[in-house]
Computed example of a mutant assay.
Amino acid sequence: MYPVAPLTPKALYEQVAEQLRQRIFRRELAPGSWIDELKIAEEFGISRTPLREAIKVLAAEGLVTMKVRRGAYVTEMSDKDLHDVYHLLSLLESDAAAIVAHTASAEQLQQLQALHAELERSTGERDQFFAVNERFHMALLEIANNRWRDQLVADLRKVMKLNRHNSLLKQGRIEESLTEHRNLMAALQAHDASAARLAMQSHFENGLQAAA
């Protein structure tokens, strides 16, 4: 019988990882910037051990890049990286949209419609629009009910946020995105799996053009 480690609240390194993750998303740690372990450890009042564990978590998510003998840096997204992430998200989420169109109950479609209505009301505030948009996409994935796809999409969306502030800088992109969501909702409510798949693919294709 192996000894059982005591159960504790959320591990310190996970809390540190979330703090750093949010700093990266807010651009307080900019793409390409070096992560000063000593400075951050002192700021958080922790040893470098949990900080290094936190950095490993972020590296596994793709948010941090480890460079030999140079340390950890916030990942910079190349054009190829951006295309690759959008390509995979398009494949995964368009498949989920087709499944939802085919299998969703009236209550589940009502849940998505409520999120869509909230998105319609969020067009005046970019950060709020991003947040509601992500909730919509994650709700759709939850309804599609494939935890392995959910895990892949969650990690890819974290990486996508490295470039997210560029994606709505294109004039009129929020309005275009909203139109794409309306087309998607219409396909879902019509239980048209092919149209839902195509609507989601178009959504990501247009998003990539705006973000590139």
Rank of each mutant, 00 (worst) to 15 (best):
R70P: 00
E120L: 13
H116R: 07
Q19F: 11
K67F: 08
A98M: 05
A5W: 06
A98G: 08
E18K: 03
T103S: 06
A210P: 06
L63V: 07
F25S: 06
L20W: 01
L89F: 03
R69T: 15
R69M: 10
L178N: 04
F130P: 01
E205N: 12
I55G: 01
S78C: 06
V100E: 03
T49E: 14
E37F: 00
P9H: 09
M185D: 03
L168V: 06
S194V: 13
L88Q: 14
V4L: 12
R157A: 02
T179H: 15
A196V: 04
H191L: 04
L20A: 06
I143P: 05
A131F: 07
R135T: 10
A154S: 09
N163Y: 02
A212L: 15
A114C: 05
E205M: 08
T123G: 12
A60P: 05
R126N: 08
P31L: 04
Q128K: 15
F44Y: 14
Q128L: 14
A186H: 11
Y2L: 13
L29C: 03
E14Q: 13
P6F: 07
S47G: 12
R121E: 12
F136G: 02
E42V: 02
E118Q: 13
K67S: 07
A117G: 07
E14Y: 10
P31M: 03
K170Y: 08
R69K: 15
R48I: 14
L63P: 00
N145F: 07
R135A: 14
H191R: 09
A212R: 11
A186G: 01
A186Q: 11
Q151D: 13
L20F: 04
R173S: 14
L12M: 11
G71C: 00
R197L: 09
Q108N: 06
V57F: 12
I55Y: 02
E53Y: 15
A154G: 09
E142P: 01
I174P: 00
V4A: 11
V100Q: 02
M200C: 09
P3C: 04
Q209V: 13
A11L: 14
D81P: 04
H137E: 15
A101C: 01
E18I: 05
R69P: 02
W34S: 08
V68Q: 14
A54K: 04
S94H: 01
L184A: 05
K161W: 12
G71H: 06
H181V: 13
Y2T: 09
A72S: 14
Y73H: 09
E61W: 09
T49A: 13
L119V: 01
I35S: 02
E118D: 15
Q22K: 07
A97E: 00
V4D: 11
D150P: 02
S177N: 13
E107M: 03
Q201R: 13
L29G: 04
L188D: 00
L208Y: 11
L115I: 09
Q19Y: 11
Q113W: 07
N146I: 07
I46M: 08
V74G: 02
N163K: 11
A60R: 14
Q189P: 08
L38R: 15
S90G: 06
A5F: 12
L198T: 08
T179D: 14
D150Q: 15
G124V: 03
R197I: 04
A193S: 14
M1A: 11
D150Y: 03
G124Y: 02
Y86Q: 08
H181F: 12
A101P: 00
R69E: 13
L91N: 07
I143Q: 05
